[in-house]
C-alpha cells in the first residue's frame, strides 16, 4: 500500500473487500442455524471488516460496515439494513476503543471476539428498540456464548486466511 498507485489500489481493495463481505453474508444465510435468535449470527462477513481493521485502516472498515448496511437495506428492507448497520458500527467502535486502550497488548482473538460480541449486542439493541421490552436476562447469556464462538471462528479463519490475503 505504500507505492505510487496506492490510491487506486486502495479503492479497488476496499471495493473487493465489500464484495467479499456480501458473498460471505449470502453464504452465511445458507448455513442452517440450530437456533434462530434475532441478532445471533456467525458473522462471517465480519472477517472482512476485521481484515480491514487490522491491515488497511479503521476508516475503510467503517466504510465497509456502512456499505453492508446500505446493501442490506436495499435487498432486505429497512429493518434488516438498520440491524446490519447498528451491528457493524457497534463492533467497530468497540474494537477501535479497545485497540486504542490496549494497542499491542491485545490479541487478534480478543479483538475478534469483542467485535463479534458487540455486533450481536448492537443488533439486539436495535431489535429491542424496534420491538420494545425484550427480556435481556434470556438473551444476554445467548449473546455472550455465541459472541465467543463467533469470535473464535473469525480469528481462526483470519489466521488461516492471512498468509493468502497478504499476497494481495
Amino acid at each position: 500500500m505504500k507505492n505510487e498507485d496506492s490510491k487506486t489500489k486502495h479503492m479497488v481493495l476496499t471495493a473487493m473487500l465489500f464484495a467479499t463481505a456480501i458473498v460471505l453474508s449470502i453464504v452465511e444465510s445458507m448455513i442452517p442455524m440450530p437456533i434462530s435468535i434475532p441478532g445471533v449470527k456467525f458473522g462471517l462477513s465480519n472477517i472482512v471488516v476485521m481484515y480491514a481493521m487490522f491491515f488497511l485502516n479503521k476508516r475503510d472498515a467503517l466504510m465497509i460496515a456502512i456499505l453492508k448496511g446500505v446493501f442490506a437495506a436495499l435487498t432486505r428492507g429497512a429493518v434488516a439494513g438498520l440491524l446490519s448497520l447498528t451491528g457493524g458500527v457497534f463492533s467497530i467502535v468497540v474494537m477501535v476503543v479497545l485497540m486504542f486502550i490496549l494497542k499491542e497488548k491485545g490479541s487478534y482473538f480478543l479483538y475478534s471476539m469483542s467485535g463479534a460480541l458487540f455486533h450481536n449486542i448492537g443488533q439486539f439493541v436495535a431489535i429491542s428498540i424496534i420491538y420494545t421490552n425484550m427480556v435481556w436476562l434470556y438473551y444476554l447469556p445467548i449473546l455472550l456464548v455465541t459472541g465467543i464462538i463467533a469470535g473464535m471462528i473469525t480469528s481462526v479463519l483470519l489466521r488461516f486466511l492471512l498468509p493468502a490475503l497478504q499476497k494481495i
Binding site: 491485545g106 487478534y108 482473538f109 447469556p141
Partner: peptide, 23 residues
C-alpha cells in the same frame, strides 16, 4: 500482536460463567 493470550482464556471462562449465572 499475538493471536491469543492466556488472559483471553480467563476472560472467556469468566464470560461463560457469567452467562451461566445469568441463564
Amino acid at each position: 500482536m499475538s493471536w491469543m493470550k492466556k488472559r483471553d482464556i480467563y476472560l472467556v471462562i469468566g464470560m461463560l460463567l457469567f452467562a451461566g449465572a445469568l441463564y
